[in-house]
Nucleic acid binder design. Structure first.
Lengths: 223, 223
DNA sequence: TGAATAATATGAGATATCTCATATTTTCGA
DNA sequence: TCGAAAATATGAGATATCTCATATTATTCA
């Protein structure tokens, strides 16, 4: 992890204004952090000292269960907050957040800004919107996961993440995210290939029959 | 649904102050609504005209999937907001909310208060906290539902909802909430009885072996 | 009060998903 | 560049969960 200093920090701040997020001046004590792929932005179970706002990159939120099973809870990308739960709640079990690409974020030290943030309508309004969108997405995903078999959810996931007709997510990530076993994921992928919805090309899968996948995924949408 | 008028409204407002929720005066245009068991506070798919704050009672949030399957998404009780999603987001699929007991809430008309609410730090701070807690609970429930079989989740649910050692939730509600079929729920309940964790008494179940259930539920908690 | 509706109950077979064992291939750091 | 670790792959049997069919109570309401 690198903390931008002096000139480097100044330049980054100049080129990436986040004044629109706050009703007051934050420049003085704000930091700019850069994390490499694989680095932990927050360690599971340890409260962070900063409120982060992600500018570039992507990360994943994980939680470890008592039985050792690890769940990927969600993806984080540009314009997401990190540490907002800890800002708002004194009692909160901190999830682990790991950068999955190089990730740059602004970091506001709690000890310095907590009081001001909690009284700033502009900030609170932005955060509220962020939280409500997050809650909505999560609710949708949750009720889907209970109501539909992997076949439908995977079709949706493939269409969402495929790039130019090519699906190339890591299986391990996907089973975490969709909450199924590795074995079963492969099984359903094979079915898709057998049915000619996909065609395997080395590590990747090319979408052959878009419509069939779309039909499977469509079932997830309510109305 | 009854809207309290005149004297009745005045008395209710006097006895139940919610001044602490807002940084400005809301008395003038606020309404007090009372819903009977079974009544819909919000119809699925129809945007509400009010922001509600629940004072008494309990309700359930439902969503209907395209395949006709209905999921119970969550419970609502005193001190919860309703309609906050619609206040914050112009685009939002409204879930259905049905009172499960007599429910009384304050109702603030959007057309009158929207602008002021979105600029009121006190209100936004309360709402933000509410949303963050909500998001946390949902996240926990979600990752649990994927990582553990019904046995564990049901044990937890029974301990949470049992009243003086007696569990008496309606099966239908529970399968909605836990996202399993009616048949399977009964199957696992029968197992609990066979193992002497529970003892069936007419419609209800008495908790016999608290410890065993606790052990099953404990597995859900992370650390 | 009686009929309609909701809730509870149970069996049996089907399917979705998991666990475990094991092999091969790829990636990546020392 | 070599070896460890990560990722992919596949089989086989176990288990969790679903669907459907069908009865039997409760509850509600006209």
């Amino acid at each position: 992890m690198e903390v931008y200093k002096d000139e480097k920090k100044r330049i980054y701040l100049e080129n990436n204004s986040i004044a629109y997020l706050f009703g007051f001046q934050v420049d003085e004590f704000i930091e700019v952090h850069e994390y490499q792929r694989g680095e932990w932005i927050i360690q599971e179970g340890m409260r962070p000292d900063f409120l982060f706002y992600v500018m570039e990159g992507a990360a994943k939120i994980y939680i470890t269960h008592q039985n050792g099973k690890v769940s990927l809870i969600n993806f984080i990308s540009a314009n997401d907050y990190i540490g907002e739960m800890e800002l708002l709640n004194d009692v909160y079990y901190t999830k682990g957040i790991q950068a999955s690409t190089k990730t740059i974020c602004f970091a506001l030290p709690f000890y310095r800004y907590r009081t001001q943030l909690m009284e700033d309508a502009k900030f609170l309004r932005e955060l509220t919107k962020f939280l409500s969108v997050k809650a909505t997405l999560r609710a949708a995903k949750y009720s889907q996961s209970l109501a539909f078999p992997l076949e439908n959810r995977l079709a949706d996931f493939i269409l969402q993440t495929a790039d130019e007709g090519i699906y190339k997510e890591k299986h391990i990530t996907v089973c975490d995210y969709l909450g199924v076993s590795y074995r079963h994921l492969l099984h359903v992928l094979k079915q898709f290939c057998d049915k000619n919805y996909l065609q395997k090309e080395g590590r990747n899968y090319q979408i052959i029959h878009y419509d069939s996948l779309y039909k499977l995924a469509e079932v997830l949408k309510h109305n």
